[in-house]
């Protein structure tokens, strides 16, 4: 089990890399690819998610450009890619069950797997471990983000 921290009930895993302002995370895989998803804070702000649409496998994205979109009953917006690279896999399970993002933001609710093109450089802009927790704490307090609510079956 990964080490986690909770801020206002929002779970931050310390083993991931975060683009805190965009509410996204990156997990580095052994095969050189990187998995990307949305954070617990993101799912909480959006509320129960109705649709996740991700661009096609093979699409090349620059850091900061949308990998796709996410919509709930009260919000619609982009999922900004925290790294540059080519989409090599998308989470097909989200088509049938988009609330996997709400229930399992760091595991089964992952969004896309990328083959990074500039990872070493771009990792410098992402935060992990205690740095990520501190940055999220500051953001949550500054923006007065409401306490995280979790759907039944929530998993870390």
């Amino acid at each position: 089990m990964a080490e986690v921290e909770e801020i206002r009930g929002c779970v931050i895993r310390k083993d991931l890399y975060y683009a805190v302002d965009d509410h996204t995370w990156v997990r580095l895989n052994d095969d050189g690819t990187a998995t990307v998803g949305m954070t617990d804070v993101a799912q909480n702000l959006a509320g129960p998610i109705l649709h996740v649409r991700v661009k096609k496998v093979g699409t090349v994205r620059a850091k900061g450009k949308p990998l796709g979109t996410v919509e709930s009953s009260k919000w619609v917006g982009p999922i900004k890619s925290p790294i540059s690279g080519e989409i090599v896999e998308i989470n097909e399970a989200l088509k049938e069950d988009p609330q996997l993002v709400n229930r399992s933001p760091y595991n089964r609710g992952w969004v896309a797997r990328l083959q990074p093109s500039n990872l070493e450089e771009e990792l410098k802009d992402l935060l992990s471990g205690d740095q990520a927790v501190a940055a999220y704490q500051e953001k949550i307090e500054r923006e007065d983000i409401k306490a995280c609510e979790h759907l039944e079956g929530f998993e870390i």
């Binding site: 450009k65 949308p66 979109t69 919509e71 619609v76 917006g77 982009p78």
Partner: peptide, 8 residues
């Protein structure tokens, strides 16, 4: 409009 903006 927001959806279209999210789609770039």
């Amino acid at each position: 409009a927001m959806a279209a903006a999210a789609m770039e």
